[in-house]
Simulated assay, not measured.
Amino acid sequence: MAGETETEIQDSVGPPVPTISAETGTQTETEGQYKAGRLVLTDSAEIGTQTGTETERERQDMSPERESGEEQRSRREPAPGPGETGSVQTEAPVPDVSESGREDSGTRACDDEETARKGREEGRVDVVFPGSVTLDGCCRFVCELLKCVLYQRQQLPMTYDQMVFFQKQQHTSGRSEEAEVKKPAKACGGLPWRRCQRTLQDLDEVLSNLEALFSLSHVPRVLFMLGGSAVLPAELYEVNMEAVAVRGGEKCLRTSWCLRQLFRALFVADLLSDVKPVRLVSTTVMALAHRDCGVAWFKPKVDFKVPTKVKRRVVSLSCDAALSGGAPVAAADWDDYIWFQAPVAVKGFST
């Protein structure tokens, strides 16, 4: 009974701890295996620690800060293609940003000098867009140029946008018609209200019908004739768009960017300045369009010839053929185009 109890106690406690005995080598052998196992684990841990240390040291040594110049060059150099050897590869020279910037500045300065010379000697400014433009963009070019010519040639006391702003102010001022009849009212900024309203009305009518004409036909040329008559005007300005490549879609240039390029060239050429005094005149607009476009507001002038006895100032717009991806209208197609005259003339006024 006592033996069974002792056996149960030993089973509950666990296997007996091996002891050293001189008679049998089992326990000694077991202890040796136990010690050997600890030795193996200790050696493995030390080896793992050394391996991790060496790996960390190798990672630090291979960091970009410690890479040698030869390793960096070999990493940048592309792998040799089929039939090529990698022994004669040379590193491409890095371009100097400062030198390229100076070259661009020099090129632009030369272009500006040529633009100024053409504007001074030939009365002409050439603007080449690096891509195609939209039909709506061509209409915007003409409309903005008309506003600019009227203001620069002192036919308007201020810019078109300022006049529109003052007109809106006048409408919201709440003045009654009786007060306007008794005492001629002056719009903000000292503009005569009635004359300002009449000029804006005529100019808006011309601009809106130009948009309608551009929607019906391709318009390669537009004339602004100041003073005199259609046969012999005092001043003649031409917008030539025969070399413009018109396309649709997202691949076309932004109209706002093209307008900045256009007016920058116009400013450099100084095409609209004149030391001679300018008197108030009427401005007539004529446009070249297809004879069968179906426009009703513009009046066709089949026998009209562009006046040659007056100095003509030309704003020539074109698109780079290599970048536009489109071709302008062929010259042979201009035979079906005739001149149309705006029935309303914009009368200049001043304060």
Rank of each mutant, 00 (worst) to 15 (best):
residue 223 L to Y: 12
residue 222 V to D: 08
residue 233 P to M: 04
residue 224 F to N: 03
residue 230 A to G: 15
residue 212 A to M: 14
residue 223 L to K: 04
residue 236 L to I: 06
residue 235 E to D: 12
residue 226 L to F: 13
residue 212 A to R: 09
residue 233 P to T: 01
residue 237 Y to S: 01
residue 223 L to S: 08
residue 213 L to M: 15
residue 227 G to Y: 05
residue 224 F to T: 06
residue 222 V to H: 08
residue 227 G to L: 03
residue 230 A to D: 09
residue 217 S to K: 06
residue 216 L to V: 08
residue 220 P to D: 07
residue 226 L to H: 10
residue 236 L to G: 03
residue 233 P to C: 02
residue 221 R to G: 06
residue 218 H to K: 07
residue 233 P to R: 02
residue 234 A to M: 12
residue 239 V to Y: 05
residue 219 V to I: 15
residue 235 E to A: 07
residue 234 A to G: 14
residue 238 E to F: 01
residue 219 V to R: 03
residue 228 G to F: 09
residue 227 G to N: 04
residue 234 A to Y: 14
residue 232 L to W: 04
residue 224 F to A: 03
residue 240 N to P: 05
residue 225 M to F: 00
residue 231 V to Q: 13
residue 224 F to G: 02
residue 214 F to S: 05
residue 237 Y to P: 00
residue 217 S to R: 02
residue 216 L to T: 05
residue 239 V to W: 05
residue 227 G to D: 04
residue 215 S to I: 02
residue 223 L to E: 07
residue 237 Y to V: 01
residue 228 G to C: 01
residue 218 H to T: 14
residue 214 F to T: 03
residue 228 G to L: 05
residue 239 V to C: 02
residue 221 R to N: 12
residue 216 L to S: 13
residue 230 A to Q: 13
residue 230 A to E: 10
residue 234 A to Q: 13
residue 233 P to Q: 00
residue 213 L to T: 15
residue 235 E to K: 07
residue 238 E to S: 03
residue 230 A to R: 13
residue 217 S to F: 11
residue 217 S to I: 04
residue 229 S to M: 08
residue 226 L to T: 05
residue 218 H to C: 10
residue 240 N to Y: 04
residue 234 A to I: 04
residue 230 A to H: 14
residue 220 P to A: 07
residue 215 S to W: 01
residue 222 V to M: 07
residue 233 P to I: 01
residue 211 E to F: 09
residue 216 L to Y: 11
residue 237 Y to I: 00
residue 224 F to Q: 06
residue 225 M to K: 08
residue 231 V to L: 15
residue 211 E to Q: 13
residue 214 F to H: 11
residue 223 L to F: 10
residue 235 E to R: 08
residue 221 R to T: 14
residue 233 P to V: 00
residue 229 S to W: 11
residue 229 S to D: 09
residue 240 N to H: 08
residue 216 L to M: 14
residue 223 L to I: 07
residue 216 L to I: 02
residue 224 F to S: 04
residue 230 A to W: 14
residue 211 E to P: 09
residue 231 V to N: 10
residue 222 V to Y: 09
